[in-house]
Design a protein around this nucleic acid. Structure first.
Length: 421
RNA sequence: GGUGGGAUGGCCGAGCGGUUUAAGGCAGCGGUCUUGAAAACCGCCAGGGCGCAAGUCCCUCGCAGGUUCGAAUCCUGCUCCCACCGCCA
């Protein structure tokens, strides 16, 4: 959520910023609502003071057995005006809040301008692109031959774009999860979290999925709960409504969870195999930091995610996301895209973002620099470390051999227990 | 799911329709004293809003309504917590 004061003081910049993000919400209307809200508020405050004063005087007179009928009548009249002003104020507050919740975060000044993903900027390519002396196969063919992914039965159990890992496939997935979590907790200083996979509306609003993106989430109607689309949601909200003592920052959390996304209207051959499925696993990193540190923290967050790809010896590139393609809550975002040689394309396996105080404001995540300081909004960041299915794709396709078997990357061999799949 | 009890500032806790304009204590912060510390004493110490600012200003006693001239206090609904019962991996 953007700060209404910031919008008030610099409406042109706010309008320009949200336009860069591709939103055309009218800032002028928001300012209009805010202006009349404050006018009513000032008036209401004045007459509330009068009511408070008079009520006190009534009490005094009644105690002294003096007449207070005139004062009571006056207070009654004031009470009616207060009631009407209060209802106008609360209507304005509701309208204002609704609109503010729909406004995207502003892009950081360093973010390249651009409309959509075609304007994103590749800023680095890392690792060696694997060479093959045979035609590399896509992962669905490799997996089918090895019997490690069962698409047909996934569809039978649930529906299209659900799948089943079986045997060594399930084991490889588990090895990857452990490998990633172990790396982040033991080498990068993250504290492991195991959150609920179902969350309520407030939680989803705190990180920015609601109200705008309700249709993207699976909802449990009987209890009005939602399946999490990413661990970022429950983990960032861990400190919702809290004031964190400054010495506890920065906070680093890492969590493994399944993620559930309806992905309405995104089927097609681009998404064959397990590139886009409704339920997938992910290890996620979340940071809560001091505002002045958040951009440096974004770099180390990205580097922590890159460490996983490096350790798995996969070729990938780093993409800086342009303003128009930035996520709703993000001020700056890097994506890591891993090379899938069988598919012949790069796949997004991680998205590392600084939301600055956008989520902190929605969720009320504050901190105190010293025990005597006023609370300030913290900055929150999140990054995948990494998304499992696409990591699995990259491993299968990169490490495939001419005979159809798959060589397990060195870093995984101990945890997986075998060299060859 | 059922029955009962509860929800006041970081924590404990008073309050039971009008000098509560939320007492008091603990913790915390600053200071006096001290070689240093402890003790003692003094001061500060919830969050938010409005405002350039000052502010004997406004709001918030779980949340939302209501009664009243006036609500932390009375009424209604809801949420959450605790205990017991039921069910259950």
């Amino acid at each position: 959520m953007l700060d209404i004061k910031l919008i008030r003081e610099n409406p042109e910049a706010a309008q320009k910023g949200i336009a860069l993000k591709g939103s055309n919400i009218d800032i002028g209307e928001i300012i209009g609502i805010d202006t009349s809200r404050r006018a009513n508020l000032t008036r209401a405050d004045e007459i509330k003071k009068e009511r408070n004063d008079l009520s006190r005087e009534i009490g005094r007179r009644l105690k002294a057995n003096q007449d207070a009928a005139g004062l009571m009548e006056r207070v009654r009249v004031i009470g009616e005006e207060i009631k009407s002003l209060d209802s106008r104020i609360s209507a304005a507050e509701t309208a204002l809040h609704e609109r503010l919740l729909m406004l995207p975060n502003l892009p950081h000044e360093s973010v390249p301008h651009g409309r959509d993903e075609s304007d994103n900027v590749v800023i680095a390519e890392r690792g060696t692109k694997p060479a093959f002396d045979f035609e590399p196969k896509p992962h669905w063919e490799i997996a089918e031959r090895l019997g490690i992914i069962d698409f047909t039965r996934g569809t039978k159990l649930t529906g299209s774009n659900f799948m089943v890992y079986a045997g060594a496939g399930a084991r490889l997935q588990r090895a990857l999860i452990n490998f990633m979590l172990d790396m982040h907790t033991s080498q990068h200083g993250f504290r492991e979290i195991y959150p609920p996979f179902l969350v309520n509306r407030e939680t989803l609003t705190g990180t920015g999925q609601l109200p705008k993106f309700e249709d993207d989430a699976y909802r449990i109607e009987s209890d009005d709960l939602f399946l999490i689309p990413t661990a970022e949601v429950p983990v960032t909200n861990l400190h919702r409504g809290e004031i964190i003592p400054g010495q506890e920052l920065p906070i680093y959390y890492a969590a493994f969870t399944p993620c559930f996304r309806r992905e309405a209207g995104s089927y097609g051959k681009e998404n064959r195999g397990i590139t886009r499925i409704h339920q997938f696993d992910k290890v996620e990193m979340v940071k809560i930091v001091r505002p002045e540190d958040s951009y440096a923290e974004l770099e180390t967050l990205r580097s922590a995610a890159e460490d996983v790809l490096r350790a798995l010896e996969l070729h990938y590139r780093v993409v800086e996301i342009c303003a128009g393609d930035l996520g709703f809550s993000n001020a700056k975002q890097y994506d890591l895209e891993v090379w899938a040689p069988g598919m012949g394309r790069y796949l997004e396996v991680s998205s590392c973002s600084n939301t600055e105080d956008f989520q902190a404001r929605r969720a009320g995540i504050r901190f105190r620099r010293t025990p005597a300081s006023k609370p300030e909004f913290a900055h929150t960041l999140n990054g995948s470390g990494l998304a499992l299915p696409r990591t699995m794709i990259a491993v299968l396709e990169t490490c495939q051999q001419a005979d159809g078997t798959v060589r397990i990357p060195g870093a995984l061999r101990t945890i997986f227990g075998r060299d060859i799949l």
